[in-house]
Design a binder for these strands. Structure first.
Length: 607
DNA sequence: GCCGTTTTCGGCCCGACTGTTTTCAGTCG
């Protein structure tokens, strides 16, 4: 059983327990473990099989969850989960996907009205039966009907980072037109460079919040205003993208930026550290808590109702005794400094490794787009690209690259007009002539050779031996057992002419799942034969993802970040690949194509 | 259900906004 399947089982347990109103911390324990296992760098099944190792060494996995993982991995099923599923039909969990409906409301609908599906809920709303429930009203009923379309979508659609980037740029431009805006930053998963983005978070410092909110209400493509208060406003665009806007004063801007950039997991750790030091961090700043006041306020909290003890002092961070004394918050650097921490690059803030790195004083200096000297995977109109060889070269030079490899397809990829050895050699002659004309830039004679269904490569060795750069990739036979695909890739890595594996995991996000290999054997082969693995920057693919990159870094397997561009515009996606590399903590050193071509050649042991 | 320089119990981040109720619970991020 793969880690992703174990993670999915724990996620489902979390959902059902939440629906049942279980202890929220127990729910969180399952969710946390799910995430940790999903992101874990090796199959947990391997740890189960190894008597010398313990699952409880994985953070957030205790005795209980270790036992459940063992049962899942060895039997393929979990009795506890089966029981839960019998108690709560899966269709009921869909109710939780309706915006504004959480576990309490969903449980009430299920229990009081016997609602089991979204269809039944729709009927109940239309029959005005929902508004009769305690805590529900007319507005809730209308909101539920409006929210049903989002819940009915098979999966809540997430947008590629690159697409979200276009909206983020447009939003920035739109809001900066307000005279009162002093600072603007995007926060959330967009700022952390996640592969896909669920919604956009924008943060603004302004002397006139109403002006900014009115302006947001005029944003292109807006379909609905979901809510609007004094400091916060949410809208939804026609395409479903939600945009959250927060407006904060200058003294809170850094604290709010830190807070809304997240991730949630990163912030939980940070807040815990603050607490240990007698500090409190919220979106308004860092506060020193007076012990006497704190004791009084916690007594008060116990004796009075929830939410009443500490009324937040929005826009008045220096007031409110119970809030403590403001000590920082203008910038993120300031906030982290109060805990003796460096200002983590946003891509790192996932509570994976960053706090250990900081504690050891070994926070890596992350690779940047400007570090990349060459792009080693791209196509021309000789196969399925849209631009000519010359156009691709000109674009790469324009972008400041020092070298590129032209890697058109081999003959097996008939759909893309793949090239045989003869055509390839003619292209290479063309490249030789081009190289003779240009200075300070090298065009490499390359090819993306297919790894055939039956194994072996799609071009003869003598042809491949003439190339400067050979990437091998799987396009066919993706339905084979994963072990078989792995074998084909491992065999390709052993071929002395192959330099790298293109999109090695076969990962494609959102649209469909490709074969998604476990890369254990591939890592070994790459190390043995001193080969590279490609981080494909295509936003729909992003293969390797950040987790694989992190493993490569750990094992010392060099990565090349490539665009797989099929047009001149395609070269711009490099940024998406670099973001993933940064999320994995990769430095300039970990990325082979941040070096000059001469050094790469040496790494490959070529003359 | 996890975790521990407060280690086997008692915490576990914390505030905005909405709708319904009239002082607060639920949801969300």
């Amino acid at each position: 059983m793969k880690n992703a399947e174990v993670a999915a089982a724990f996620d489902l347990i979390g959902d059902i327990l939440e629906f049942q109103g279980a202890n929220p911390f127990r729910v969180r324990a399952y969710r946390t473990a799910s995430r940790v296992i999903h992101d874990f760098s090796e199959p947990v099944a391997g740890i189960v099989a190894d008597s010398n190792r313990k699952l409880t060494d994985i953070s957030s996995v205790g005795v209980d969850l270790a036992e459940k993982i063992t049962v899942l991995v060895t039997t393929g099923t979990l009795p506890m989960l089966e029981e839960l599923k019998a108690q709560v039909p899966q269709s009921v969990l869909a109710l939780l996907r309706i915006p504004g409906v959480g576990p309490k409301k969903a449980a009430m609908l299920h229990k009081e009205l016997g609602i089991k599906t979204l269809e039944e809920l729709k009927e109940a709303c239309e029959g005005q039966r929902v508004r009769t429930l305690k805590g529900f009203g007319e507005k809730t009923e209308v909101a539920i009907i409006a929210g049903l379309q989002f819940a009915a979508a098979p999966e809540i659609a997430r947008m590629y980072w690159a697409e979200a980037d276009m909206y983020a740029q447009a939003l920035r431009e739109h809001l900066l037109a307000c005279k009162s805006v002093k600072q603007f930053e995007m926060a959330g998963s967009y700022r952390r460079g996640r592969e896909t983005i669920g919604d956009l978070d924008a943060l603004v410092e302004s002397s006139d919040p109403a002006e900014v909110m009115d302006r947001l209400a005029e944003f292109d493509g807006i379909a609905a205003v979901l809510g609007r208060g004094e400091t916060k406003m949410s809208i939804r665009l026609g395409n479903g993208l939600q945009i959250d806007l927060r407006i904060v004063p200058a003294e809170s801007f850094g604290a709010a930026l830190q807070y809304f950039t997240g991730s949630k997991e990163h912030n939980v750790v940070l807040r815990g550290m603050a607490k240990d030091r007698g500090l409190k961090i919220n979106e308004y700043g860092v506060f020193r808590i007076d012990e006497k006041v704190k004791a009084a306020s916690s007594e008060k909290a116990k004796s009075t109702a929830r939410n009443k003890a500490t009324k937040p002092a929005a826009g008045n961070v220096e007031g409110e005794e119970t809030e403590g004394v403001y000590i920082a918050g203008r910038t993120e650097e300031e906030v982290y400094a109060t805990l003796g921490l460096p200002c983590f690059p946003p891509e790192m803030r996932e509570n994976r490794w960053e706090f250990q790195w900081a504690a050891a004083g070994k926070l890596p200096t992350l690779v940047e787009v400007a570090d990349i000297q060459g792009d080693l995977h791209m196509h021309t109109d000789a196969t399925d690209g849209k631009a000519t060889l010359e156009e691709m070269v000109a674009e790469a030079q324009e972008r400041g690259l020092k070298y590129i490899a032209i890697t058109d397809h081999s003959p097996r990829v008939t759909m893309a007009n793949g090239m045989n050895a003869d055509r390839l050699r003619r292209q290479w002659e063309q490249i030789d002539k081009l190289n003779a004309k240009i200075k300070g830039f090298v065009v490499l004679k390359g090819v993306e050779v297919d790894i055939l269904e039956r194994g072996g490569l799609d071009l003869p060795d003598d042809c491949l031996a003439e190339a400067d750069w050979v990437v091998a990739s799987v396009h066919y036979g993706q339905n084979q057992p994963r072990e078989k695909i792995t074998e084909r890739i491992v065999e390709a890595l052993a071929n002395p002419n192959v330099c790298a594996i293109a999109h090695p995991t076969g990962r494609i996000i959102n649209r469909r799942k490709a074969y998604e290999l476990d890369l254990g054997a591939v890592y070994e082969a790459a190390l043995t034969h001193k080969k590279f693995l490609e981080l494909n920057s295509n936003p729909a693919r992003l293969d390797l993802n950040d987790i694989h990159c992190a493993t490569c870094r750990q094992r010392g397997i060099p990565i090349v970040i490539s665009t797989d561009a099929h047009s001149t515009a395609g070269l711009s996606v490099l940024r998406c690949g670099v973001l993933q590399a940064r999320r994995a903590g990769l430095t300039k050193n970990d990325v082979a194509n941040s070096r000059p071509w001469g050094q790469l050649k040496k790494m490959l042991g070529r003359k």
